[in-house]
Computed example of a mutant assay.
Amino acid sequence: MKLPSLKPVVLRHVTTTFAAGSLLVLATAHAAGPVVIGSKIDTEGSVLGELVLQQLKNGGVDVKDRLQLGVTNIVRQALVSGEIDIYPEYTGNGAFFFDMTDSPVWQKADSAYEAVRDKDLEANQLVWLTPAPANNTWAISVRGDLARDNDLTSLEDLADYLQAGGKLKLAASAEFVESPQALPSFQEAYDFELSQDQLLVLSGGNTAATMRAAALQTDGVNAAMTYGTDGGLQALDLQVLDDNLGVQPVYQPAPVVRQSALEENPEIEALLAPLFEALDRDTLQRLNGDVAVNGLDPARVAADFLSTLDN
């Protein structure tokens, strides 16, 4: 992405009559400090944060670790205020940052990215870099055996399966079942309807509980409310059904950096672009699963993945 109006940081027209000491003072005054890297406190935040930290450090950028700083509003405020310089955020959260939850721009990847990129640059001098193709949005996932036996890969397939009399019971939170933006919007768009007997409503919004219910077939459950990149999906053999109609807002992870920090360290953009381009849905599920399910240290998971990008 070409950045608008970036000012060069290289000093020009320095005369040779300056004393060596004066040159040293001048260079020190303009030296960039370390790039302070933050991240959210959840599993995916820890993975993405470590990937950013290690990729920049490996690329020769001086970095400072402020990973797993807190929840979204805490990390976002730290970036806006200049406490940190960069962290991984989701494009769809622009709907909340800019009070645009009713706008259709968030339903498509390109328009969501462009909207939050343009607004954040104008309002806050924050630059959104290359996003990952992964989409960590609300999803309906089914057991792997059900998906394989019935060729279920999308919500259109699910609607056809239900229309033909297929059996389904979904574990979900009350919010997912009742919120107009969640299950009701899926049902309207794809023309199916689940009865109360086809729902297991769990308290809270923890997808670990809904995925576990599907994996164990609790009370006949064979489908679960999930997020697109949940770490337990592959380990529990659950298949995310593609939302081809774009019912849910798109939540692509992307690095967001203070414009001043990017001007001082322009190599950041080129270092992070190939990394985030490699983070498709299955890859991010696997990396999250290594931490959430296999108990590996996020730093190790990130280092192992980055080593594969170098080959």
Rank of each mutant, 00 (worst) to 15 (best):
D297H: 09
D62M: 06
A182T: 07
A109W: 06
F192M: 04
D219R: 10
P180L: 01
A189M: 12
N93P: 09
M100C: 07
E188W: 06
M100V: 01
D160P: 02
V9G: 15
V75S: 01
V71P: 03
P8D: 14
F176D: 03
V14Q: 13
D280A: 08
P255F: 01
L272T: 04
P298T: 05
L216Q: 15
W128I: 04
R117C: 07
D65K: 00
D230T: 06
L202A: 03
R212F: 11
A302C: 02
T226G: 00
R12N: 12
T210S: 15
A182K: 15
D145Q: 13
V63T: 12
V61D: 01
Q54W: 00
Y227W: 14
T15D: 15
D118M: 09
F192E: 02
D280I: 02
T283G: 03
E267W: 10
A123D: 15
E156A: 10
D65I: 00
A29D: 14
A302W: 01
Q285S: 12
Q77M: 03
Y190C: 05
Q285E: 15
L296I: 08
W106Y: 03
L262C: 08
A209L: 13
L121T: 02
G295L: 09
L309V: 06
D42C: 05
F186A: 02
Y227S: 08
V61K: 02
A209I: 10
D62F: 04
N58T: 09
G49Q: 02
L6E: 14
S154P: 07
V80P: 01
G232T: 09
P34S: 08
A164C: 08
I268P: 13
D230A: 11
Q239V: 09
A208H: 10
F98A: 02
G231N: 08
S81V: 07
K64Q: 13
E50F: 00
S307W: 09
E89P: 05
G60R: 05
L158G: 00
A147G: 12
D310G: 04
E83N: 07
